[in-house]
């Protein structure tokens, strides 16, 4: 994929490189678990990436490496060319640059009102009260929370609204890379779609790098440009969605399904209708079928 970990010197614009990364939990005890095995990845600026894997595939471990909450047991993670395991590495800067939204982020809310909670991140960056509040206001607007909720207790909001507030809390730090771990977990279909649309909108407006972690292909297929499939701590596929979804059998073997439309297109092709099978969204499928009938 690249020649050396020093390719930042060649002037290629890239933000995060994982070079032969391994991660082992509870090394040398009965609980030892090899969560990541020889992972090599390169996340470029402005990419919209889906990170997919079944439970226990190592995706949550991987995202924690991205902002230095965990350090690799072997191998190295480079952020803008600097090794995050180095003693003099600026972790504060990394955490300001790579925003991580955990699973069920609403469980981290603690302030007396929504606005104060969103201010927490920017204040920790050392911004003045005014700047922090400005950022908080922007972030809350970006996640589409109604202004009437701004000064309510975060605990009085509904599940979906709480999640928006929590995402705004990270967004207010204005990270270059935004990593969201299962942002739709536990939400109803409507809430899921709302959150995903909101994230896609963010990407369109801010042109930041977004890593969307999910166990559902259906969730990410419509939005991302690149999919990384993890299985048992290893990278199984790393390609565009259309390319990844051609491996239907292999994906099913690791308990992942491709989007429903991909199945339909495959069945149509089998039935003798000449359609492309690397279709991942409903819109594309409609076009393809219409084209096939010459309309």
């Amino acid at each position: 994929m690249w020649d050396s970990p020093y390719c930042h010197l060649t002037g290629i614009d890239m933000s995060i490189i994982l070079d032969h990364v391994n991660y082992i939990y509870d090394k040398d005890t009965a609980f030892e678990r090899h969560a990541l095995k020889d992972v090599n990845l390169q996340l470029q600026d402005g990419e919209f990436i889906g990170l997919i894997g079944h439970t226990g595939s190592g995706k949550s471990t991987l995202v924690q490496l991205l902002n230095g909450l965990l350090k690799p047991s072997a191998g190295a993670v480079y952020f803008d060319g600097a090794d995050i395991s180095d003693d003099d590495f600026d972790l504060k800067n990394l955490r300001a640059s790579v925003g991580l939204v955990f699973q069920y982020p609403e469980h981290q809310l603690f302030e007396t009102d929504v606005f104060q909670d969103v201010c927490f991140g920017p204040k920790n960056l050392g911004l003045s009260k005014k700047d922090a509040e400005l950022r908080a206001f922007q972030a809350l607007k970006q996640v589409g929370l109604k202004e009437e909720y701004f000064y309510q207790s975060p605990f009085d909001l509904s599940g979906g609204e709480k999640r928006r507030v929590a995402i705004a809390g990270v967004l207010a730090m204005q990270p270059k890379v935004l990593v969201l771990d299962e942002p739709t977990a536990g939400l109803d279909p409507k809430g899921r779609e709302d959150i995903l649309n909101m994230i896609a909108q963010l990407h369109k407006e801010l042109h930041n790098t977004i890593v969307l972690v999910s166990h559902s292909m259906e969730d990410v297929a419509d939005y991302v440009e690149r999919i990384i499939v993890m299985n048992k701590g290893e990278v199984l596929y790393d390609a565009a969605p259309q390319e990844v979804f051609t491996h239907v059998e292999e994906l099913e073997a690791v308990h992942l399904a491709v989007p429903e439309v991909t199945y339909i297109m495959r069945d149509l092709a089998r039935a003798g209708i000449k359609v492309r099978t690397d279709v991942t969204t409903v819109e594309e499928a409609v076009e393809e079928i219409l084209a096939c009938y010459g309309r």
Binding site: Q64, N67, L69, H107, K123, V170
Partner: peptide, 13 residues
Amino acid sequence: DKIMKAQIARGAR
């Protein structure tokens, strides 16, 4: 551990 990590990710020390 989880909450701590989440708050560290938001810049808490």
